[in-house]
C-alpha cells in the first residue's frame, strides 16, 4: 500500500530536500477559520499537515497547544467535525498528506472501526496518537494499518536501542522523533544531538525520520532539516494564530495570513537546508 505520505517522501528524495511538517489544531479558533488556514498551508510551503484533534486533557502538550484545544472545543469542535474539515480540504487538494494527531479517548468513544473507515473515506493518511505506545498496539495501531492508514510513532530520547525495534515494528509513513524529553513548546534541542539521534534511529529503519518539539525559527528549522528527513513545527504556528485573535479570542481578518506568513518563512528555512550526506 502506498499512501500520500509514502509518495511525498519518494518525491522529496528525488528533489533532495527535507519535508516541512506543520501542525494546526482543528477548530481553532473556529471551524470555518480553521478550514481556511488548512487550505492556505500547502501554498505557504507545508509538505505534510498534522491536524490536532482537540482533547480536554492533553497530557503531553504545553500551554499553547492546550489553549488551542480549549479554544477549539469552546467553538464546538468535535471529532466528527474534524473529519468534515478533512473532507472540505480534499475537495481542493488530493495530494498533500494529512495526519491526525491527538489522544485516544475521543477515537475510542467514536468507535475504532467506524473512525478508521470514516477517516480513510475523508482522506486522512496517517495517525499519531500520543497515548498509544507499542504495548497497546491492539487497540488502534494494528486495525489502522489494516485499514490502509499509516500509524506514525513517536520515538524519544528515552527510547533506547533495546526498545527502538519494538517502537518501529508497526510504524509506517515516517518516524516522528521528539527531540527533547518534555512537552510541546518547550526549549529547543541542540541540532548536533538531534543529528546523532536521527542517525541512531536510521540504523534501525528505512523509514524517513522527522524531528519536532522546540523548532520556532527558520534557522532552527533549517538546522534540523539538514539532519533529518523532515522538520515539524507546531507551537510557533499556534502562537502566531493566537496573537492574531481579538480580545474575545475570535478570528480577525489577519488570522489566516498570520499563520501562512510564519509557515512561508519557516518553509524557506527548510528548503534552504543542505541535505546531509547519506
Amino acid at each position: 500500500m502506498t499512501t500520500r505520505i509514502d509518495a511525498l517522501f519518494a518525491e522529496l528524495a528525488k528533489e533532495g530536500r527535507s519535508a516541512f511538517v506543520t501542525f494546526l489544531m482543528a477548530g481553532d479558533p473556529d471551524p470555518a477559520t480553521s478550514l481556511d488556514i488548512l487550505k492556505a498551508l500547502p501554498k505557504a510551503g507545508a509538505d505534510i499537515i498534522e491536524i490536532g484533534m482537540p482533547f480536554t486533557d492533553p497530557m503531553a502538550d504545553g500551554p499553547s497547544i492546550q489553549a488551542a484545544g480549549l479554544r477549539a472545543l469552546k467553538s464546538g469542535m468535535t471529532l466528527r467535525k474534524t473529519l468534515e474539515m478533512v473532507r472540505g480540504f480534499r475537495e481542493e487538494d488530493n495530494t498533500t498528506p494529512l495526519v491526525l494527531m491527538g489522544y485516544y479517548n475521543p477515537i475510542y468513544i467514536y468507535g475504532v472501526d467506524k473512525f478508521l473507515a470514516d477517516a480513510k473515506t475523508a482522506g486522512v493518511d496517517g495517525l499519531i496518537i500520543v497515548d498509544l505506545p507499542p504495548e497497546e498496539d491492539d487497540e488502534l495501531c494494528i486495525p489502522a494499518l489494516k485499514a490502509g492508514l499509516n500509524f506514525i510513532r513517536l520515538a524519544t530520547p528515552t527510547t533506547d536501542d533495546k526498545r527502538l525495534p519494538a517502537v518501529l515494528a508497526n510504524t509506517s509513513g515516517f518516524v516522528y522523533y521528539v527531540s527533547i524529553t518534555g512537552i510541546t513548546g518547550a526549549a529547543a534541542a541542540d541540532s548536533k544531538v538531534v543529528g546523532d539521534a536521527v542517525a541512531r534511529i536510521k540504523r534501525h529503519t528505512k523509514l524517513p525520520v522527522c524531528v519536532g518539539f522546540g523548532i520556532r525559527t527558520p534557522q532552527a528549522a533549517r538546522a534540523i532539516a539538514e539532519k533529518a528527513d523532515g522538520a515539524v513545527v507546531g507551537t510557533a504556528l499556534v502562537d502566531a494564530l493566537r496573537d492574531s485573535l481579538d480580545t474575545q479570542g475570535q478570528a480577525t481578518a489577519k488570522t489566516v495570513a498570520a499563520v501562512a506568513d510564519v509557515v512561508a518563512s519557516l518553509a524557506q528555512g527548510v528548503r534552504g537546508a543542505k541535505q546531509a550526506a547519506e
Partner: peptide
C-alpha cells in the same frame, strides 16, 4: 502481565514515559 483487570487498566502513556 500487561496491567489489565478484565478490559480495564493498561499502559496508555506517551513513549517518553514508557521506558520508565
Amino acid at each position: 502481565e500487561r496491567g489489565h483487570f478484565g478490559n480495564f487498566g493498561g499502559r496508555f502513556v506517551a513513549e517518553t514515559l514508557m521506558p520508565l
